[in-house]
Amino acid sequence: MKIKEIFPGVFRIGDDLFTKNLVPGEKVYGERLVKINGVEYRFWDPFRSKPASAIKKGLKTFPLEEDSNILYLGAATGTTISHFSDIAKNGVIYAVEISEVPYRKLMDLSKKRFNIVPILADARKEKEYSDFIFGKVNVVYCDISQPDEVEIFIRNCEKYLKDDGYGMVAVKSRSIDVVKDPMEIYREAEKKIKAVGYEHLETVKLDPFEKDHAIIVCKKTK
């Protein structure tokens, strides 16, 4: 079988995406495991994880590397984070989640994947988790489906992102405004990001994997 590393730590086998399993033998959300030349890979499901959908849809900049430190807002139960933890295996993922129920799962996940720091906090109050984040991060990833998520994302980038770091925000067009045209909502989000002086790199719509969603990628240039 042909296997190709299309981004650092992201592999394509046939049409499917995979990451190298950090904890061989363990599934996180029921995903398929495959072994190639003695190495175990986990299927990265584009219907379950937005960065995977974005890559499938032709994302050009995927800023994660083996030793990236990442601030992840809206961690949920860690579906996507588990793949980030495969990719940034020598980095740290600061995983912020506001809700107790998914947080418990996240905490369990962090006991097997040592590069995840699970933080129970509100991403709106970015100062409240400064105790845990030592040194600025290379990437801020935000997926919280809140009407003010772009503002929250920017505030977190301002505080925690390195000056040449990358930001990714998953924008749900319906959670911001139900009536407006989705494209218009993505443009507005881009505008807000440019207004603080970040460089807008690309916006990738996620359908058919995720309806009414796009991922916006930007770079902090200061």
Binding site: V92, Y103, M107, S110, F114, N115, I116, V117, P118, I119, L120, F132, F134
Partner: peptide
Amino acid sequence: LARYSAEVASNLA
């Protein structure tokens, strides 16, 4: 160090 931060964060939570 990250491991330890995770433990402290979990304890706090």
